[in-house]
């Protein structure tokens, strides 16, 4: 499986990137702006019955039907209903070797920020609430920590999980 964020892959990707930060479950999360297409306000959200919690809904983004994903599920964060601050990040990803537009829920979008290599730490072995294999690194900015989720690993897990289910049926 090719990396989900292929579109964003470039030399030194981990060391020096522009990221967008947003709140989820009381923590700060950052993803590279290179995969970010736009930020939209949530319109009508359509539930997808029997879908995994990570991608349990569909939204309409300018006429496209786009799955809405929720990082709080794989990162095991508390979930609360949407409010006035809720936004959707529209991302350009590569799923199953196909370019895909995916929506990602954010409780509150903060800012676009430069993340340099020196402010990145490896994931500590202890003291983290979220599954380690879904987190790429921990960043620090103005004294606050933020999580850089491993989108490749998270999406690969969801897609593989889906594959397993089909073949066993």
């Amino acid at each position: 499986m090719s990396p989900v964020t292929d579109l964003a892959a470039r030399p030194g990707a981990r060391a020096d990137r522009t990221m967008v930060t947003f709140s989820l479950g009381g923590e700060l999360v950052a993803i590279p702006t290179a995969v970010l297409r736009e930020v939209i306000e949530p319109g009508t959200i359509t539930r997808v019955p029997n879908a995994p919690g990570f991608a349990a809904a569909l939204i309409n983004v300018r006429g496209m039907v786009v799955p809405l994903t929720d990082l709080r599920i794989p990162l095991r964060m508390p979930v609360r209903p949407p409010d006035v601050d809720t936004r959707i990040l529209v991302l350009d990803l590569v799923l199953d070797d196909m370019p895909c537009v995916v929506g990602m829920l954010a409780e509150l979008v903060h800012e676009v920020t430069e993340v340099t290599g020196t402010s990145l730490d490896d994931v500590p072995d202890v003291g983290a609430r979220w599954p380690r294999h879904f987190v790429q690194a921990i960043g620090r900015k103005n004294g606050r920590f933020f999580i850089i989720p491993d989108l490749d690993a998270i999406f690969a897990y969801q897609l593989d999980g889906a594959d397993r289910k089909t073949t066993s049926s």
């Binding site: 997808v48 879908a51 995994p52 991608a55 799955p67 799923l95 199953d96 895909c100 995916v102 889906a162």
Partner: peptide, 12 residues
Amino acid sequence: KQLSPLHASLKT
């Protein structure tokens, strides 16, 4: 509209 690979396994 086709469903994304994330929902490809839903038979309904």
